[in-house]
Design a protein around this nucleic acid. Structure first.
Length: 239
DNA sequence: AATTCTCCCAACCGCCATGCT
DNA sequence: TAGCATGGCGGTTGGGAGAAT
């Protein structure tokens, strides 16, 4: 049904062999079975040779993608839970579109899944915030600015803690989940970031602005997390 | 009932990084 | 050190399914 449209052309990328047509498009159950069985017997990796040995007319890249995003047994299928959603939001605020990094904090979820989820649920809202939310954002940023001078002492402390977390994150980025708690899930913890570092919980005091009622709307909201995070980091690093 | 719209997600593409020879 | 193969990532696309009109 779907044959590669590049047959006979100049193939690019891995596994592309001149004059060979690769299958493209949706995978069949038979192809899935071949791939699963081969990975079970021989393990992951060497995707091009795997595809050849398994008798699949797919390039290695396609095989890897199918395995990673769909066939891996540890994958968690089904809807993103509210808790997972809050983690996605928080980590996206921190890391931006680093989907694979975010996915490492959500066992069983793939970068593709998280990326798709973000795009369908949040992107529009981030791109086109309402006038009301835009106004709230402006007010918040203005107020945060005015707080800066009063809080230099406090910020210095925050700065040190954030830097410490950042350095630990840099050392442990591939294995550490970091949760910037969602206000709705952590009412009793407002005003703190909890980061899971080597089994320890680290409390970081936030600037006052980020714990007022108005700003709780911000932490609950779906917009502006990038800006807020950047602002927080800038604020805490100005000292 | 037919058409249009929106959501959802699998899969592809291009690019860059890394490892090997 | 250069060149190639492979791995990995983020952006994008296309089509199916269900909702709305």
């Amino acid at each position: 049904m779907y044959l590669g449209m590049m047959a006979g052309g100049h193939h690019r990328g891995w596994g592309m062999i001149e004059d060979e047509a690769w299958r493209k498009g949706p995978w069949t159950a038979e192809e899935d079975g071949l791939l699963i069985e081969h990975v079970r017997l021989h393990g992951e990796g060497r995707w091009n040779s795997l595809a050849r040995l398994a008798g699949l007319k797919r390039n290695g890249k396609s095989c890897r993608l199918r395995w990673v995003n769909y066939l891996r047994p540890e994958l968690k299928r089904g809807h993103i839970t509210p808790h997972e959603e809050s983690i996605i939001l928080d980590l996206h605020a921190r890391w931006g579109n680093r989907w694979s990094t975010i996915a490492r904090s959500l066992p069983g979820r793939t970068d593709n899944e998280i990326k798709n989820y973000w795009r369908t649920h949040f992107k529009k809202r981030v791109k086109a915030p309402s006038d009301a939310s835009e106004g709230a954002k402006t007010r918040l940023l203005r107020r945060q600015k005015s707080h800066n001078q009063q809080q230099q002492q406090q910020n210095l402390q925050v700065d040190q803690e954030v830097k410490r977390i950042m350095s630990l994150l840099d050392e442990n980025e591939t294995k550490l989940p970091l949760y910037w708690p969602h206000a709705a899930d952590h009412h009793q913890e407002q005003g703190f970031f909890y980061s899971m570092l080597d089994g320890n919980i680290v409390n970081v005091s936030l600037p006052e602005a980020a714990s007022s009622n108005e700003d709780n709307f911000l932490w609950d909201g779906l917009w502006n997390l990038n800006d807020v995070h950047a602002n927080f980091i800038n604020t805490t690093r100005q000292s």
